[in-house]
Computed example of a mutant assay.
Amino acid sequence: MSQTTPVETVLDRRQLRRKLTRWRLAALALAVVALLVAAGRFAGDAGHLAPHIARLEINGLITGDRDTLKLIKSIDESSATAVLVQVSSPGGTVTGSEHIYDELRRLAQKKPVVAVVDTMAASGGYIVALGADHIVADGNSLIGSIGVLFQIPNVAKLLDTIGVKVETIKSSPLKAAPNGLEPTSEAAKAAVDALVADSYSWFKSVVKERRGLDDAQLAAVSDGRVFTGRQGKDLKLIDEFGGEREALAWLERERGIAKGLPVKEWKKNAVGKPFNLFSAAGALLGAAGVEPLERFASQMENVQGQATLDGLLAIWHVGRDQ
C-alpha cells in the first residue's frame, strides 16, 4: 500500500489552492460586474426620477426599430414633464416613420412634445417632426421632401448582354413584380404606382392635419422638394426659427413647464441592452483565468443585428430629390 509523501501532499494542496483562488476571483469578478451594472442603472434611473425634460434624438436612417419605440414608451412612463425631440434625418421607411410618429402622438397626449430640427428633417424625418406639438428649425435646416419612393435596379439588359436568362415560375403575373431581372410590365408598374399613391396620400393627409394647411398650401409643399427653414417658415412647415433654447422657451411660455428644469438625454442603451454586461464580464473573467466563460461572454458580445430598408421609402437623396 502506497503512501503519499509530504512533498506530494504539499503539491496537491498548492494545486487545490490555485483552483480555489481562480474560482474565487471569477466569483468576485461577476459580483463586481453586477454591482457596476446595478450602480449604473441606479444612477441613470435616479437622474430620471426627478422632474426633467427628456431629450430624444432621432438620427440617420429611420426604420422604426424596436429599441427606439421602447425608448419612447419608457419616456412616457417616466417622470419627464416634457419631451424635446432632436431630429437629424433624411428619412427612411414609410412604415418605420409612421410607427415613431404614432408613438410620439401618444406621448404628446400626456406630455408636451417639441421637435428641434438640426441639419435636416426630410421625408420620414419630417414625418417624425410632425409628431411634435411644435417644430423649431434653423434658417438653413432642410425640411420637407414630402413624397414616397419605390426603387429597384433593373439589370435585365445587362443579363441579355452577357447571355443570362432567369427562368421564373410563379402563381400569377404580379407575384414578385417588379424584380429587376426582367423588363417591368405595365401592370407591375401600375400596381407599384398604386402603393406609392396610397402612402403618398397618407403622408399628405398627416401634413395637412398637423400643419393646418388648406389644399392650395398643401399642393405648394408636397411636390417632393426640400425647403430651407426660412422657406419652410413662410410655408407653415415649421413654427419658429431657432434650436433647443427656443424650444425650451416655448415649453415654458406655452405649456407651463417650469423654467430651469434639467434636460436629460435618453438613449437606447439606457433601456436594457445586455451586451455591455457581457463585455465587462468577458474582460474580468479573462483576468481571472476562466477561459470557457470568457469565450462565452465574448461570443455574446459579438452578436450583431443588421437593419435593412424594406418596403416603401420616405427618404431624401442628395442630387436626386424624391
Rank of each mutant, 00 (worst) to 15 (best):
S2E: 13
R13W: 07
R24C: 05
L30I: 14
A31T: 15
L49D: 10
A50D: 09
H52V: 04
D65Q: 13
L69W: 03
K70V: 01
I72V: 13
K73H: 12
S74W: 07
I75S: 00
E77T: 03
V83W: 01
G91L: 08
T95M: 08
H99W: 04
E103D: 09
Q109V: 02
V117M: 04
M120C: 05
M120S: 09
A121C: 08
A122H: 00
A122C: 13
L130S: 00
G131K: 00
G131S: 01
D138K: 14
S141H: 09
G144L: 03
G147F: 05
V148G: 05
I152M: 13
N154W: 00
V155S: 04
L158P: 03
L158R: 09
L158T: 13
T161F: 09
T161H: 09
K165V: 13
K165N: 10
T168Y: 10
I169L: 14
P178Y: 04
G180I: 04
P183H: 05
A187Y: 01
A188R: 01
A188I: 06
V192L: 12
W202R: 15
F203G: 02
V207G: 02
K208E: 15
K208H: 03
R210H: 03
R211V: 00
A216Y: 08
L218Q: 09
A220C: 01
S222R: 04
S222W: 03
D223S: 14
G224T: 12
F227G: 11
G229M: 00
K236M: 09
K236T: 00
I238S: 06
G242K: 02
E246H: 04
E254C: 01
R255N: 10
I257H: 06
L261D: 07
P262I: 00
V271Y: 12
K273D: 11
F275S: 11
N276H: 10
A280L: 15
A280D: 09
A287Q: 07
A288M: 04
V290I: 14
P292Y: 05
E294M: 15
E294C: 12
F296S: 10
N302Y: 11
Q306V: 14
D310S: 15
V318G: 11
Q322G: 12
